[in-house]
Amino acid sequence: MAAIDMKKTGRYILLAYLAVVCLFTIGAFDKLNRKMSFGGNRLFIYLPVVILLGVLLYYYTRLLERSMENGKPVFGAKLFLTIHKYRFLIEQLVSRDFKIKYKRSALGVFWSFLNPLLMMIVQHIVFSHLLNIRGDVQHYAIYLLCGIVMWNGFNDCSMQSMRSITGNAALITKVYVPKYIYPVTKVFSASVNVLLSMIPLLLVTLVYGLFSTPRLYLHLSVFLLPFGLIFLLVFCIGMGFLLSSLMVFFHDIEFLWTVLSTAWMYATPIIYSLSMFEGKQGVQWIVSLMNFNPLYHYISFIRTIILDGTSPAFTEYLICGAFSIVMFFIGLTVFRKCQDKFILYL
């Protein structure tokens, strides 16, 4: 039984890898197909690495399969079994959140499209006509929209997942379910919205680009958008673990976080641009400090893809990935340490 499941899981892993490689190759082809300083094309290094990784992954899935047969656990096997076991529950919880959110509104799911759009119109009017802080940003409307979509995604995810443990208190004290599931599902259901809001983002870019001077076209680099979203998602899950476990012990976090996140929003170049600070004395520290703001990196990632029509620099992938993974493990460790005490405080 389990062995068959692992065969499927292995196939999914390989498919996921294939999808990642395809998206990346298509999206970043212009950067990959380039001469290097010592001669030779980047593709000559990229392709063998991809194939080698694929082969390694294939052996790993074979190892997974075999581990189920002879009962010797391989690294990660337990994780896949857990996911398999609770997949249905996660599915149900996510679909519940999603149904509930729009159940009583007339426009329903359209709010996911409308919300960022209306927000952008409001902020666009305020910031490009009333207050002139756009600096020398070209295509300011799209610049703004990228920032709003990503920030709203982050804000939604962190707010929702923060209440995931305290909000499910009735369940946690009655039925045993691994508690990780609650923040993770909240992030998933919030990120469905982020995913949906990508549609108005792309549509607006398409229409706006036709009428603006200079023209703005969508490039193949939009295939890289999923990477930006996955980085954000993993970061949010880590944040969710951290916030939801703190929330159990100190309810004040809820109020503190609204203040903190507002401060964070203004500290992130969403409505303004870093080029504002160029050439000014005494504010260069802001620019260098920005390197430690993960949201800045995630938003720039998306902006490069849409506005510049090219892949972000390869170091940018590493930076974004590192932020996500570090946050994830910080959150996970805190959550793990606290989770047995939750029930005593709920």
Binding site: L89, Q92, L93, R96, K99, K103, L171, K174, V177
Partner: peptide, 23 residues
């Protein structure tokens, strides 16, 4: 305890069943 008042009976059967660990 896992019921959601806004969902229908049918949706709740699946939700509550999943919480109780049925596949």
């Amino acid at each position: 305890s896992g019921f959601d008042m806004d969902l229908s009976g049918r949706e709740n059967i699946y939700l509550n069943g999943a919480i109780l660990g049925y596949d």
